[in-house]
Amino acid sequence: MKILIVEDEQALRQNMLSYLSEDNNVCEACTDLAGAVYKLSCYNYDFVLLDIGLPDGEGFEVLNYLRKEMRSEAVIIISARNSLDDRLKGLNIGADDYLVKPFHLAELKARIFAVFRRRAGNNNNLLVFNEITIDLNGRNVLINGNEIILTRKEYDMLLYFIANKGKVVSKTAIAEHLWGDEMDMHDNFDFLYSHVKNLRKKLLDAQATEYLKSIYGIGYKFTDK
């Protein structure tokens, strides 16, 4: 995948770049509106990660440019502003998703993954990770061809892990992804542990390899290495 990151904050840009530059992804970055439009006029990308508050204008301009040129890049807006108006405006003029700062890199990756899957549509609705096959339309999970029954939370968690495969994902990030902001339980992760425990047990019971590793105190890593 070719990803263009438009973000003026150097440190954040750097981290996004290094976090996403794996799995055959090619990432490029620029810092302002003019740079973004220039890059988009020269190259095609699969994804644009777009900050709204840029030094030389609002990121919405990039969306307008893409729409005018009838381009097919998927766009995820990354904004410090969590206002409904901005969100609606962004989504109305062609953004695929809207992510509010401060976000977890794992969340960003899961969103990219989800948008990518959604865009692929019916042509490619099977997600395969070694012996695990997920039918994204039917929300079914097959291990070696045998279906296992997962709860909604376990299913979401599995997708989240696969989107961030090979990465250590913090439990804060997982909890935020699964429960959102509104049910904030303030660093009480007991409920998270039981979900992870159940998911791991179901996968192991169906003879899957143990991919899910606990990283002491901090979170989990889903990896086949």
């Binding site: 954040l12 976090y19 700062k101 977890h104 105190g217």
Partner: peptide, 30 residues
């Protein structure tokens, strides 16, 4: 309050990147 979110996003992304390091010790992770 919005301006504060960008540095916060930087801190978070740094942490997200930092925990990828296999050599971190228990104390560091705490």
């Amino acid at each position: 309050s919005h301006e504060m979110m960008t540095p916060l996003a930087v801190i978070r992304s740094k942490l997200d990147t930092l925990i990828q390091d296999d050599t971190l010790q228990k104390e560091h992770l705490d």
